[in-house]
């Protein structure tokens, strides 16, 4: 028996809107730790990792570990039917072939339940070690989204370079080139507008902007985004989900031939 009650149901709506275009089908894993997902996009260059810790739910009952295969597009369609202020409860029976999403309005005057069929999904689970990154950039998520969007009108790839001077986002295309440099800005009175660069070693990596733009669909989840870089490793773009967890995107770098 599984029963997870999330008072801030809008978080789940936002998570689904962020990942449904990147990943079609995925297994949601439920354990005593929390509700999690790890899934790759169809071309196996990007990976989504979601964790919603059990402590973040108002009620969390998971009698035994359960893996539920879901079509994310269909799940997003159902969650779209929940109001932004609704409380969302996810329910499933052990060994059952469906999951129920229950939506309660804040004053309990409307209760809806949507039942969705589960599916069997064969997925490869990657073992991602905890890594010390050479450079970690924390910046406003809206600024990062704006940069990725702007650069994708000029080129297909972005070169992200972190040096002592700041973080540089560069692209080039048929019509010309573009460079955007963000310097460290530790705004004390507005921490959500800060840009903080922690750098052990200068690092420069190239990524496909198409994926970066897809990751920025998670912008409504968090005011800040963390971009972690190490030479010859996938970048990690992380959006914190309040105090309860995170949505991380991993993207393999492009290597010059």
């Amino acid at each position: 028996m599984l029963e997870l009650r999330l008072v801030q149901g809008s978080l789940l709506k936002k998570v689904m809107e962020s990942i449904k275009d990147l990943v079609n089908d995925a297994n949601f894993d439920c354990s005593a730790t929390g509700f999690s997902l790890q899934a790759m996009d169809s071309s196996h260059v990007a990976l989504v990792s979601l964790l919603l810790r059990s402590e973040g739910f108002e009620h969390y009952r998971c009698d035994r570990n359960l893996s539920m295969g879901m079509n994310l597009g269909n799940m997003a369609k159902m969650l779209k039917c929940a109001g932004n202020d609704d409380i969302v409860t996810i329910k499933a029976d052990d060994g059952g072939d469906c999951v129920t999403f229950m939506f309660e309005s804040p004053n309990q005057d409307k209760i809806a339940d949507f039942e969705m069929k589960l599916m069997d999904i064969d997925s490869e689970h990657l073992g991602i070690p905890e890594t010390e990154y050479e450079a970690i950039v924390r910046m406003p998520s809206s600024e990062f989204a704006r940069i990725c969007k702007d650069l994708s009108t000029i080129g297909d790839t972005v070169l992200i370079s972190v040096t002592k001077e700041g973080v540089r986002f560069s692209t080039k295309g048929d019509i010309g080139t573009a460079n955007i440099v963000c310097r460290q800005n530790t705004s004390v009175d507005k921490p959500e507008e800060a840009t903080i660069i922690e750098m052990e070693t200068p690092v420069s990596l190239t990524f496909a902007l198409r994926y970066m733009n897809s990751f920025t669909k998670a912008t409504p989840l968090a005011t800040q985004v963390t971009v972690s870089l190490s030479s010859e490793l996938p970048v990690v773009v992380e959006y914190k989900i309040g105090e309860m967890g995170y949505l991380r995107f991993y993207l393999a770098p492009k290597i010059e031939e």
Binding site: S43, V45, E124, L126, A208, Y250, A252
Partner: peptide, 14 residues
């Protein structure tokens, strides 16, 4: 001019 790497080239499969 770039080749796109796959994630499996970096991380092991569990």
């Amino acid at each position: 001019q770039f080749s796109q790497e796959k994630l499996q080239d970096f991380y092991g499969v569990n």
